[in-house]
Structure formats: structure tokens, C-alpha cells
Lab assay of single mutants.
Amino acid sequence: RQGFVPAAYVKKLDSGTGKELVLALYDYQEKSPREVTMKKGDILTLLNSTNKDWWKVEVN
């Protein structure tokens, strides 16, 4: 499932696989259909980080 999360809630990881991955630093509950819920410690695939406030991710 793809959607947006606050950029301040995730940290980029060095995956070494060519995929950009991020680590969820905090729990986040989606507040609109365009967002996704994540739990602290989740590893997500980063799809787009051009917006400084909201990053598009895919929940694996």
C-alpha cells in the first residue's frame, strides 16, 4: 500500500540494495486516504521525497 507520511517521522536508511528505505521513528495513524499508518520500527520503501514535509512511501 502506498501513501504519504510526515518526513519528520522517518529516517533514510542505507540499504545497499538500490531501493531507498526509511525507518519509522514514531507511530503514525493515517488521517486521510492519501496517508498510510506505520508503527515505530517499520521499514518502508521510499518512493518520493521531493516534498520536504511529506514523503511518499510503500508499506511492505
Rank of each mutant, 00 (worst) to 15 (best):
R1Y: 06
R1P: 06
R1K: 12
Q2G: 06
Q2K: 09
Q2V: 13
Q2W: 08
G3V: 04
G3H: 02
G3Y: 04
G3C: 04
G3W: 04
G3T: 02
G3P: 01
G3L: 05
G3K: 03
G3A: 04
F4K: 03
F4I: 06
F4Y: 14
F4N: 04
V5S: 00
V5W: 01
V5D: 01
P6L: 05
P6V: 03
P6D: 02
P6A: 02
P6K: 04
P6Y: 03
A7T: 05
A7N: 03
A7D: 02
A7Y: 02
A7F: 02
A7C: 07
A8H: 12
A8Q: 12
A8T: 11
A8R: 15
Y9D: 04
Y9T: 07
Y9G: 07
Y9N: 06
V10Q: 01
V10W: 01
V10M: 06
V10P: 02
V10S: 01
V10C: 15
K11E: 14
K11W: 07
K11G: 06
K11T: 13
K11M: 14
K11C: 15
K11S: 10
K12F: 08
K12C: 09
K12H: 08
K12P: 09
K12V: 10
K12W: 08
K12G: 05
L13R: 02
L13Y: 08
L13N: 02
L13W: 08
L13D: 03
D14L: 11
D14E: 13
D14C: 15
D14M: 11
D14P: 15
D14R: 10
S15M: 14
S15A: 11
S15Y: 13
S15F: 12
S15E: 11
G16M: 13
G16C: 15
G16P: 15
G16S: 14
G16R: 12
G16A: 14
G16E: 13
T17K: 12
T17M: 14
T17F: 13
G18F: 11
G18H: 11
G18L: 10
G18A: 13
G18E: 14
G18P: 09
K19N: 12
K19T: 11
K19Y: 10
K19E: 11
K19F: 10
E20S: 14
E20F: 09
E20G: 09
E20V: 15
E20I: 14
L21M: 11
L21C: 10
L21Q: 11
L21N: 05
L21D: 03
L21R: 11
V22K: 00
V22T: 02
V22L: 09
L23Y: 10
L23W: 05
L23D: 01
L23I: 15
L23T: 07
L23Q: 13
L23S: 04
L23E: 12
A24E: 00
A24K: 01
A24T: 04
A24R: 00
A24V: 08
A24I: 03
L25R: 04
L25S: 03
Y26Q: 14
Y26V: 11
Y26D: 08
Y26N: 10
Y26E: 11
Y26G: 06
D27I: 02
D27Q: 03
D27P: 06
D27K: 02
D27G: 05
Y28P: 00
Y28D: 00
Q29C: 12
Q29E: 14
Q29F: 14
Q29V: 15
Q29N: 14
E30Y: 04
E30G: 14
K31T: 12
K31H: 09
K31N: 09
S32R: 08
S32H: 12
S32N: 12
S32M: 07
S32Y: 06
S32C: 10
P33N: 11
P33R: 09
P33L: 08
R34S: 13
R34V: 11
R34P: 05
R34T: 12
R34Q: 12
R34D: 13
E35Q: 11
E35N: 05
E35G: 09
E35Y: 06
E35I: 04
E35T: 08
V36L: 14
V36I: 15
V36W: 04
T37M: 05
T37E: 04
T37S: 15
M38W: 01
M38S: 00
M38H: 00
M38P: 00
M38K: 00
K39V: 09
K39M: 08
K40H: 06
K40R: 11
K40L: 05
K40M: 08
K40S: 07
G41N: 06
G41S: 03
G41R: 02
G41C: 07
G41Q: 02
D42R: 02
D42C: 06
D42K: 02
D42N: 06
D42Y: 05
D42E: 10
D42Q: 13
D42M: 11
D42L: 04
I43K: 05
I43H: 05
I43A: 02
L44E: 01
L44S: 02
L44H: 03
T45Q: 10
T45I: 15
T45V: 15
T45C: 09
L46Q: 01
L46I: 06
L46V: 06
L46M: 04
L46A: 02
L46G: 01
L47R: 03
L47G: 01
L47K: 05
N48V: 08
N48L: 08
N48M: 07
N48Y: 05
N48I: 07
N48G: 07
N48K: 06
S49K: 09
S49C: 12
S49P: 05
S49H: 10
T50E: 15
T50C: 11
T50H: 10
T50Y: 09
N51K: 06
N51F: 08
N51D: 15
N51V: 05
K52S: 12
K52P: 15
K52D: 10
K52C: 10
K52F: 08
K52V: 13
D53N: 14
D53P: 02
D53Q: 12
D53A: 11
D53G: 08
D53L: 14
D53K: 15
W54F: 07
W54M: 05
W54A: 02
W55L: 05
W55F: 06
W55V: 05
W55G: 00
K56Q: 12
K56F: 15
V57D: 01
V57G: 00
V57E: 01
V57A: 01
E58T: 06
E58L: 08
E58P: 00
E58F: 05
E58I: 07
E58M: 10
V59L: 13
V59Y: 10
V59M: 09
N60S: 13
N60E: 10
N60W: 12
N60C: 14
N60V: 12
